[in-house]
Design a protein around this nucleic acid. Structure first.
Length: 927
RNA sequence: GCUCGGAUGGUGGAACUGGUAGACACGCGGGACUUAAAAUCCCGUGACCCCUAAAGGUCGUGCGGGUUCGAUUCCCGCUCCGAGUACCA
């Protein structure tokens, strides 16, 4: 019997499930290794062929690590709260839990088909109350915590209250809202309960505050910054506007510096690290105050170029800046008013698109230059963003291009400040020269000027060195149903936590999944849903990223009811050693997870500063669409005749997407095509060489383009082992690539060849107990060495090629030796677990034990070259085979070379100038 | 605009610290087996020249330079493609 992937794979998948072969425990002397996949959101359309790419890679690595003697944690679960199930619920009325459950079932079947070695006993689902109980619990800890800048870590809020009670705000160095009060201990004690709570809210790491949020009307909810891409929502692409609302936020900015520093300690792809750095956006500079005597206040600006301060010729405020109203003089009132109105009408998108037009308005007021005391005009302009820094800038036209254009447009002075500046056409921000027109820093260099200026500004109390971050606090509430309820109730408008023992706060039933008539979130519809039948619960739910920001810790101890994970489990598994997933989570999930991880560490729940030590981004698998070309008649209407790709230019045709599943190697299956759509039943074809060749294009994989390939279909036709090998064979893991099955036959052929090598014509398993020959050992040890090297550097595609070479060599040698097969099975098992498991038991081994076999040791002796001849170039160009022993000195080489007839053809009797040795071999001869 | 990737045959891709470029696979061409097909196996396959016998030669990793005995690999300058980000002061 030939290689029958269906029966083999079903048999072993059932065996692994029945015997819990991959169940992991902590009680072992083996070293641990934690391999994690980004868990999927179970969508209604199931897995397509792109999804398993990363899972296959992680599974190969997990199986390899097990063979190498590690106790491997390799779990899987579902990020099962999310928008699509809720949108579906709105349309159909079906509870999202039911939809989600059905989708998970389908996902599980599809995953099982591929033969992953997940420990399913540790499965988590973020929408399970037993899971979100702990998401809510972590929220409570965040609510009950503040960030102490002295110790550079989060602490329970009690320690802050104690300090307020003993010394007030004196000496408290905390991350907080800007508008915190300054008080003594006595004053604190005179505050009533509500005032105290109101004040504490400004310090809590999970806090409620009126803030400007990204409001997406179409989705009926607010979105975090990372969920807004180019001014539209990441999901659905709906417009997003800025709106002021009372909102839950997470004080992630408290961790900005630690999140930045931690990036040096992780082994992540450089582009991803770069994305997080940019997102955090640390700028080192100074804050400078420009006094405004008539209002008895100052305009605070942030600058990274305090050295250019003597080049300031005006100050610009964002149109939304709070001082704009007060600063506008009567004569400028209408102009400013008009400008504000125009800019406020511009959407985020317009404002981003239109960066060339210079616009602004003069307020009519002047500020004092902090060092020269001169009057500096105050303008407003929309190129200054209210949300970054202080919403005001000092404008230096000679050093900043935007200021330069603004100055040119409005005829404001451009003051050169350095002897190296060239200001004829543009601003010149170089730091190379020495300063001019700059008072006491004249003739200084950049490095001398900055400290001198900071010192002077500090003396005057008008400025100081400052670090600014681009990252904002993360909006945490969503006006949605299908998410974790926030475990908070309101008393006199102030938020209070429910008691820990009242967790989980279950998601209540509602009649519809839409906002209430009064515009409240869907939870407002839940009847009688009140804390102690009296107090209103928080009606928004947590965002999608809440449940995914700690799930890797739950896998360590998934059934614990006393803690999110026991200390023992966390001490054992520590952090994730290898994390594989897409780069689209760079500024979302991966940042939030690091934040929560650091927070939980601060409170002493575990000891790991970073959650994911090594991370690999698998590339996206794109769709590869196929096209047929429909012949058009004279009126330009589609006929029922289709022209093959090579001939289409001779006719008038239009391309049509055709289902990739009825095309093989770009050749259309004509019968299946006739069944593809009813109107194609009578289709006729203009063929080339008797075949219909389809056109192709790489596009996103989507239903509408008929280019979605379901892994189940591939498994059915070729088997899971072929799918696994082929997805790896397709190219480097990290590279984006289109899915095509053009080469899958080659991989399938390899498995059949392997199978046949150890089966006779009747299909009986047959091995020889003879000792392998030198050549057979060489073939075997080449693959042992190669696969180990490849897996360690995540180069899975080259391993697949190496396996093919190995089996070809063994086939040529007619090698069916037991000793060869035994080791080959172990090396191949991570890639093709089913066929290897079958052969393993045919060899007489206990089923399900390959994972616990020892990885075969590579023996370099088998790879020693026996031939003496090896290629040598002359003058780096010509090549010849030089039969030489190793370790000759130059003179001996020269003599040997001169005596060699083969060499003489090239050398033409010329003397040897130089001989280049590499690793004891002659590589090149210079004459 | 800025940041980071990438460019190798008809195709996907190999070449790990500079050392026989094109491994492996697909596709294509030819052949064997077969009544035939499928399956399987064998040979050829970067371009060009010469030969049409063994063999041999020239060019060739996006473009132009450089370093080196030797460059797909390192350096400088460009072109094109992809990703991220975007008035961040």
């Amino acid at each position: 019997m030939d290689y029958n992937h269906r029966s083999i794979e079903q048999k072993w998948q059932k065996f692994w499930a029945d015997n819990q072969t991959f169940k992991t425990s902590e009680s072992t002397a083996k070293p641990k290794y934690y391999v994690l996949d980004m868990f999927p959101y179970p969508s209604g359309s199931g897995l397509h062929v792109g999804h398993p790419l990363g899972y296959i890679a992680s599974d190969i690595f997990s199986r390899y690590k097990r063979l190498k003697g590690f106790n491997v944690l390799h779990p899987m679960g579902y990020d099962s709260f999310g928008l699509p199930a809720e949108q579906y619920a709105i349309q159909t009325g079906q509870h999202p839990a039911i939809t989600t459950e059905a989708n998970i079932k389908r996902y599980r079947e599809q995953l099982d088909n591929i033969g992953f070695s997940f420990d399913w006993s540790r499965e988590v689902r973020t929408s399970n109350p037993s899971y979100y109980k702990w998401t809510q619990w972590i929220f409570m800890k965040l609510f009950d915590a503040w960030y102490n800048k002295e110790t550079d870590q989060a602490e329970p809020i009690n320690t802050l209250i104690q300090r307020f009670e003993s010394t007030g705000t004196i000496g408290v160095n905390a991350v907080s809202d800007e508008d915190v009060a300054v008080f003594t201990a006595e004053e604190w004690k005179t505050y009533d309960e509500e005032d105290q709570q109101r004040e504490l809210l400004k310090y809590r790491l999970a806090y409620l505050r009126e803030s400007t949020v990204n409001w997406c009307a179409a989705l009926g909810t607010v979105l975090a910054n990372d969920e807004v891409i180019n001014g539209v929502s990441e999901r659905g692409g709906y417009p997003v506007e800025q709106k002021k609302m009372m909102q839950w936020s997470m004080r992630i900015t408290a961790y900005a510096d630690r999140l930045l520093r931690g990036l040096d300690a992780v082994d992540w792809p450089e582009p991803l690290v770069e994305m997080q750095r940019n997102w955090i956006g640390k700028s080192v500079g100074a804050s400078v105050k420009f006094p405004v005597p008539q209002l008895d206040t100052t305009i605070d600006v942030f600058t990274t170029r305090v050295d250019t301060i003597f080049g300031v010729s005006f100050v610009v405020l964002a149109p939304e800046h709070e001082l704009v109203k007060a600063l506008t003089t009567n004569s400028q009132y209408s102009e400013v008013e008009k400008y504000i109105e125009i800019t406020s009408k511009k959407s985020e998108l317009d404002r981003m698109a239109d960066t060339k037009t210079v616009s602004g308005a003069f307020t009519g007021s002047y500020a004092k230059h902090p060092l020269t005391g001169e009057d500096v005009p105050i303008w407003i302009a929309d190129y200054v963003l209210a949300g970054y820094g202080t919403g005001a800038v000092m404008a230096v036209p000679s050093g900043d291009q935007r200021d330069y254009l603004f100055a040119k447009h409005f005829n404001l002075p451009i003051i050169p400040i350095s002897d190296s500046q060239n200001l004829e056409e543009a601003a010149d921000p170089n730091k190379d020269g020495r300063y001019i027109n700059s008072d006491f820093i004249n003739s200084m260099t950049y490095d001398e000027a900055v400290p001198a200026l900071i010192e002077r500004l500090e003396e005057l109390g008008l400025g100081k060195a400052k670090v600014n971050f681009r990252m904002r606090d993360a909006i945490f509430g969503r006006q949605r149903y299908w998410g974790e309820p926030v475990p908070v109730y309101f008393k006199n408008g102030l938020p209070y936590l429910i008691k820990e023992e009242e967790l989980p706060l279950l998601l209540p039933e509602v009649d519809k999944y839409l906002p209430t008539e009064t515009g409240e979130p869907p939870l407002g519809r839940a009847e009688g849903w009140k804390y102690q039948n009296e107090y209103e619960y928080e009606l928004s739910t947590m965002p999608g990223w809440a449940g995914s920001s700690w799930y890797w810790m739950r896998y360590m101890d998934p059934h614990n009811n006393e803690a999110f994970a026991s200390k023992e489990a966390m001490d054992y598994w520590k952090s994730v050693d290898l994390y594989i997933g897409g780069s689209e989570h760079a500024t979302g999930h991966l940042l939030y997870s690091r934040f929560w991880n650091k927070f939980l560490k601060d409170l002493g729940y575990h000891n790991e500063e970073e959650p994911f030590k090594k991370l690999i981004n698998q590339g996206m698998i794109q769709g590869r669409s196929n096209f047929v070309y429909r012949l058009l008649d004279e009126e330009g209407k589609g006929t029922n005749t289709f022209v093959s790709l090579g001939l289409k230019d001779q006719y008038n045709t239009i391309p049509l997407h055709v289902d990739v599943n009825i095309v093989h190697n770009d050749i259309l299956d004509l019968e299946k095509f006739k069944n593809f759509r009813p109107d194609f039943a009578e289709a006729e074809f203009i063929l080339e060489n008797g075949k219909y060749i389809c056109g192709t294009e790489v596009e996103k994989m989507s239903k509408s383009k008929f280019n979605v390939v379901n892994p189940d279909d591939v498994v059915e036709k070729y088997g899971a082992d072929t799918l696994r090998l082929y997805e790896m064979f397709l190219g480097p893991l990290e590279q984006a690539k289109p899915w095509n099955t053009n080469g899958i036959d080659g991989v399938y052929k390899f498995l059949r060849k392997l199978w046949r090598l150890f089966h006779d014509a009747e299909g009986n398993f047959h091995v020889s107990d003879e000792d392998p020959s030198k050549a057979e050992y060489k073939a075997l040890h080449k693959i042992i060495k190669k696969v180990e090297e490849d897996i360690e550097r995540f180069s899975f595609n080259t391993s697949v090629s190496a396996f093919m070479i190995c089996v070809n060599e063994l086939t040529d040698l007619k090698c069916n030796k037991r000793k060869v097969l035994q080791d080959l099975i172990i090396v191949l098992e991570p890639y093709a677990p089913h066929i290897t498991e079958e052969l393993w038991t045919l060899l007489g081994n206990e089923p399900g034990t390959i994972s616990y076999a020892a990885y075969p040791a590579f023996n370099p002796d088998y790879l020693v070259e026996s031939e003496f001849a090896y290629p040598v170039s002359v003058n780096g160009k010509m090549k010849m085979n030089l039969p030489l022993a190793l370790e000759l000195d130059q003179k001996a080489v020269e003599e040997t070379v001169l005596a060699n007839v083969d060499v003489q053809r090239y050398l033409d009797g010329k003397p040897v100038k130089k001989v280049v040795f590499v690793k004891g071999k002659i590589i090149n001869i210079v004459v």
